[in-house]
């Protein structure tokens, strides 16, 4: 029987303005966690619903997750201090599928979408592309560099690294070097670009999705996204069927 865990916050760091890196003591979650799965976290105070936040990394005893303050819930969560307890359900959802035949893996992350990709980058050999709005938003470059075959960092405004949307850098690389799998997480326009790049070249592509959630375990049916299929197969649950889908399974239009 799964249960919600009361986890002690061990370490907290603000890695960019409004972006917090938390490590909690959670051996049971750590033991079960797969790349791309998420946690459902109680923020405390007067915030009613839990907040779904992706797992960034795990070790034997701890789980690490990184989040940006987006509203009142994440604001309250960011006020927690080491030693405080946080109630966490997880690991939840269907993560990235890793297959032994993947030899030329590409990882593409944008903004806060880079965090769910870190554990994956540590687990496979991949060329990694990370895009951010501007230089002051660049995070985890060193950690990805230590984990990956190569890392290309870009900024939308050209203030650091590759200038422009990071999907463009990945596209050039893929056309020069080939790819047999693409993993992506980030803002919707980036995911749409990546989906197009992958599908135009017939490369399988796994995308991690986001949606407003209720229960987080598949029961309440509120966090759906569209598949483009007719009828009952027209929508899938991000929390349970995802958050990771093959690009061909979702339209990214709603």
């Amino acid at each position: 029987m799964k249960k919600a865990h009361n986890c002690k916050l061990l370490a907290k760091r603000e890695i960019a303005h409004g972006i917090f890196d938390f490590t909690v003591e959670a051996p049971e979650i750590a033991a079960a966690a797969q790349c791309g799965q998420f946690l459902h976290i109680e923020c405390g105070g007067d915030v009613f619903l839990r907040r779904p936040i992706s797992i960034c990394d795990t070790d034997d005893n701890t789980v690490r997750f990184i989040f940006e303050i987006k509203g009142h819930g994440t604001e309250l969560l960011a006020e927690k201090e080491p030693g405080d307890m946080i109630n966490i359900m997880g690991p939840l959802g269907h993560g990235f599928e890793l297959k032994p035949e993947y030899k030329k893996a590409i990882i593409i992350g944008g903004g806060i979408g880079v965090f769910p990709l870190y554990k994956l980058a540590k687990n496979i050999e991949a060329d990694v592309f990370l895009g951010f709005r501007s230089k002051d938003r660049v995070v985890m470059e060193d950690e990805f560099s230590a984990a990956a075959r190569s890392v290309t960092v870009g900024t939308d405004d050209g203030s650091y690294g590759y200038a422009g949307y990071i999907a463009g850098a990945a596209e050039e690389f893929i056309d020069n070097n080939g790819a047999d799998i693409i993993f992506a997480c980030g803002p919707l326009p980036m995911l749409k670009a990546v989906k197009n790049i992958a599908e135009a070249r017939g490369i399988p592509c796994q995308i991690s999705m986001e949606q407003r959630m209720g229960c987080g375990i598949g029961a309440c049916l509120v966090c759906t996204c569209e598949t483009g299929k007719e009828g009952m197969d027209g929508q899938v649950r991000v929390c349970k069927d995802g958050p990771v889908f093959y690009s061909t399974e979702v339209t990214l239009n709603g």
């Binding site: 007067d46 915030v47 009613f48 407003r212 049916l221 759906t224 569209e226 929508q235």
Partner: peptide
């Protein structure tokens, strides 16, 4: 069978939620 409404189907409100699953 009913596929239900489009997402977003949930909005958080003070001490509660609004949902519009639409009988999926």
């Amino acid at each position: 069978p009913r596929p239900g409404n489009r997402a977003p189907r949930i909005a958080e409100t003070p001490s509660g939620i609004l949902n519009s699953v639409g009988l999926q």
